[in-house]
Structures are given as C-alpha cells and as structure tokens.
C-alpha cells in the first residue's frame, strides 16, 4: 500500500470532498481546521502510522490521539477511507443516538481516546509513550495540536515530562494555521517563537510546510533525535483547498450553504483535473 505523492494528493482531494459533504449533511463541524490538518492526517494514516483496522486491537500498534478533537470530521473521513468503518456511517454524524459524536470517542473503531477539551492530548500521549518505553515496545505515539490550544498550560506540563523521560517515541504535530476562533493567534495570545520554545523545553523541532507531502513524510518518518521527543511544526493554511475559506477565522465552524458547497466541490474538481493532467 505505497501511494505516490500524487496519489496521496488525489486522495486528499477526495477526503476534503467527503469531509465537506459530511459537515453539510451533519449541519455542524469544524471546517477550517479540518481542511488545515487534512494533509497531515492523510500522510499519517497512509504513510506513517503502523496501524490498520486489523491491528488496532493489538498492543504493538502506533497510537494517534487527536488533541484538537474538534476537527473530528477530518479524522472520520480518513478513518473511513482506511476501512476502519463504512463511509455510510458518516451519514449519522451528530445525529440522534449516533455513536459518531462531534468529537472523537473510543466507541468509533480507530479512535484511541476521547478528546475535545483542549490541552488533553499531549499529557495522554506522554502516558502512552511512557508505557511503551517501560514495556520496551516499538510502537510510536503521535498527537495533533492546534495552535490556539497551546495557550492551555497542561501542554507545557506535558512538554516538560516528555523531555524529562526522553520520550523519543513521541511526536507532537502542531497544525500551525495561525488562526483560532476569535482571530489571529498572535492577537488572541501570542506564543511565538514557537520553535525556540519547544527547543528550550528539550524537544527536537522539525518545521515543515503542512501541505507538502514530501516534507511531512520526512518529518514524521525520519528517526527521532535519540532521547528527545519530536515537535513537528507544520505551517498550514486554515481552510486549505477551498479558496474562499482560506485564512479566514470565520470558517472555524461555519457550515457551508448548498451554494457554497457546490462552489467548494467545483474548486476541488478543478484541482483534481489539474493534478491528473500533471505528468
């Protein structure tokens, strides 16, 4: 199951399409952040994570905990594509009595932990990575953080602990789209220089374009610096892939109208044609 960069990019277009339809159907969802982290999830689940529907229950599989739980629609789209559950299940997202809640829960195959309140994923992953270290297990542990989320102090408690315990089996990925619900993160609560901060906390930092498949693959697959947890600072665009949603905080959790959905799908179709025409 080795997909080329172009094949993965084509998949990303299909995943974005599926996520947009899902959100419109559900009448709810976090669209801007879902689009900004979709390429990261695509690379994780199709190139990096040693996990599949068959191996999910086994102790040795790689762990992924989505700390920015509100972008669950992107994760649902990726997990369905990987065969963890039928895509048709996604018609029930947020519906009465559906197990597909608007944030990740372990009732859904492929989801490790219930998240949704911010600042929880990294401490949990420190525990998971510690369990792996104490076991001598080979699995790796990944979490995805939002940049607004970094204002939660619990992240920094966990950052200390991960370095203290030399958790080189742990990777935290930052979906650095520079926006949060209120507006630009630097205006809400500035936290730059991020790379310096994480380095100062004892992490090995890799800065990448969060929509570049080669860069993401290297950053997520290359061996870690021995004894250091890895921080992947992925610079992303909120709303990536739909021009009229890009870089707008107002698309944080707005649900597109039918006309906006059509316009978005038309753009994605054009992007797909361009990609297929590329030699």
């Amino acid at each position: 199951m080795t997909l080329s960069d172009v094949e993965l990019q084509l998949k990303a277009i299909a995943l974005r399409r599926g996520m947009l339809r899902l959100i419109v159907h559900a009448g709810a969802g976090h669209i801007g952040g879902g689009l900004s982290c979709m390429d990261i999830l695509n690379v994780l689940y199709n190139r990096v994570l040693q996990v599949s529907p068959e191996t999910f229950a086994e102790p040795e599989h790689d762990r992924y905990v989505q700390s920015k739980g509100h972008c669950v629609e992107a994760l649902y789209a990726v997990l369905a594509d990987r065969g963890f559950f039928p895509s048709s299940d996604l018609n029930t997202v947020c519906r009465y009595q559906s197990p597909y809640v608007g944030h990740p829960t372990r009732h859904i195959p492929g989801i490790e932990m219930n998240t949704g309140a911010l600042g929880h994923g990294l401490p949990i992953c420190v525990g998971m990575a510690l369990a792996g270290k104490r076991e001598g297990a080979a699995y790796r542990v990944f979490t995805l953080l939002g940049d607004g989320e970094l204002a939660e102090g619990s992240n920094w408690e966990a950052a200390l602990a991960a370095a203290h315990y030399q958790l080189d089996n742990l990777t935290a990925i930052l979906d650095h789209n520079s926006l949060q619900i209120t507006g630009p993160t630097r205006e809400v609560m500035s936290h730059e220089p991020l790379a310096d901060k994480w380095r100062a906390f004892g992490w090995s930092v890799r800065t990448v374009n969060g929509h570049d498949y080669a860069e993401l693959t290297r950053a997520l697959s290359d061996p870690p610096a021995p004894g250091q947890p890895t921080f992947v600072l992925a610079n992303t665009v909120k709303g990536k892939g739909v021009s009229f949603m890009e870089n707008l905080a107002s698309w944080h959790h707005r649900v597109p109208s039918e006309a906006e959905l059509t316009a978005a799908l038309t753009e994605l179709a054009a992007a797909e044609r361009r990609l297929r025409a590329t030699p």
Binding site: P59, R63, E112, M113, H120, L122, P123, I124, C125, V126, G127, M128, A129, L130, A131, G132, E135, S154, A158, A161
Partner: peptide
Amino acid sequence: GITAGLAACG
C-alpha cells in the same frame, strides 16, 4: 492525563 495514557496502553 499521563495516568489515563498509561491505562489506555495496558
């Protein structure tokens, strides 16, 4: 959080 992560991993 760490306690929960440890518990989730056996």
